[in-house]
Amino acid sequence: MELSKNEKFPSDIKMAPSEKEVESKEESSPRIPRQTKTSTARVLSHEDLERLSGDQALVSDFKHMKLEKEAQKNWDLFYKRNTTNFFKDRHWTTREFEELKACREFESQRLVLLEAGCGVGNCIFPLLEDDLRIFIYACDFSPRAVEFVKQNPLYCPERCCAFQCDLTKDDLRGNVPEGSVDVVTLIFVLSAIHPDKMKLALQNISRVLKPGGIVLFRDYGLYDHAMLRFKAGSKLGENFYVRQDGTRSYFFSKECLAELFEESGFQSVANDYVFRETVNKKEGLCVPRVFLQSKFTKPDQSQSS
């Protein structure tokens, strides 16, 4: 993020790379990682609770508005610095979300998927390689990320359509026919959107999703290790923080997420915390990660009536 000399965001121990690198390394592993699904939030130690309760100072309104105004630029700069080398391909999606394989009504049916927040294609290209009967719409906030998708040798306009989109204000129907999508993947995306605008993004997604279609969700959960590592001066709001590079992250409770989707017209199918321990052998640390992994469906009005 480009700031004047007098406008510096507080350091958060290089939160951006450490948080994202953990996710990147886990996703690249071909083996099934050790993880636990649960309906209850992580229980914090007394020390962690005191640390969180003591961090109530919020970033100034000026910096808050500046972050919102420059959100796209900050993600574009992230991809300029890291190109396609930061996140690993997400080969775990079909293992975690069986709907990517099983939601077809008949074997030869072409599955239409929207990857909302596609980044440089770490989710879509493994799916395109693995499933010849899939068509993917892929959009991202960052124009640079979309260009990386289009430059990938596996990108084929007959099987994939990538475009730049701000989910909170750009109507998806400009690129995706209304009610045409079977499955939407929303993976580590909603957390980067301002909480006040999350509902707008979900309503936008709903317009292109078929009745009976499903949203597959995975994102940062409440009390994830990354949330506890932010230093004072990084807090934007409740469970909402800014990283050193100006990108932002929200940490969801399952209750908050369910309410958000339900208010946007969806019904909950599954909504669980995923606890995972990541071992940093170099530093001798065991890092507790918390994600939310959920499924929400768009009601089929004809069936319900």
Rank of each mutant, 00 (worst) to 15 (best):
R243M: 08
A192I: 10
T83G: 03
I214G: 12
I13L: 15
N82A: 01
P299W: 12
V112M: 11
L67K: 05
R51L: 05
D171I: 07
V43G: 08
Q244V: 00
L114T: 07
A270Q: 13
I32F: 04
E19S: 13
P211T: 02
Y223D: 00
D170W: 02
F9W: 04
Q72P: 12
G246V: 04
R133N: 15
V43E: 11
E107H: 04
K69I: 09
Q203E: 15
A138W: 12
K25H: 10
S302D: 11
T297G: 14
L114S: 05
K88R: 12
F97W: 11
S18E: 03
H225A: 07
K88Q: 08
S302E: 15
A102D: 15
L113V: 14
F230G: 01
D272A: 05
P143E: 13
P33N: 06
G265K: 11
F230R: 03
F141H: 04
H225K: 04
D89K: 10
L172T: 05
V176L: 11
G212P: 05
L3V: 03
L114W: 08
A57I: 07
K14E: 04
K37D: 02
H64N: 03
D224K: 00
C156D: 14
R95W: 06
I124G: 03
E19Y: 01
A192G: 05
F78V: 06
S4Q: 09
L128A: 13
A116M: 00
E47W: 07
D272K: 10
R110E: 07
S45W: 10
I187Y: 09
I32P: 01
R51D: 00
F106N: 08
L222F: 00
K281N: 12
K298S: 06
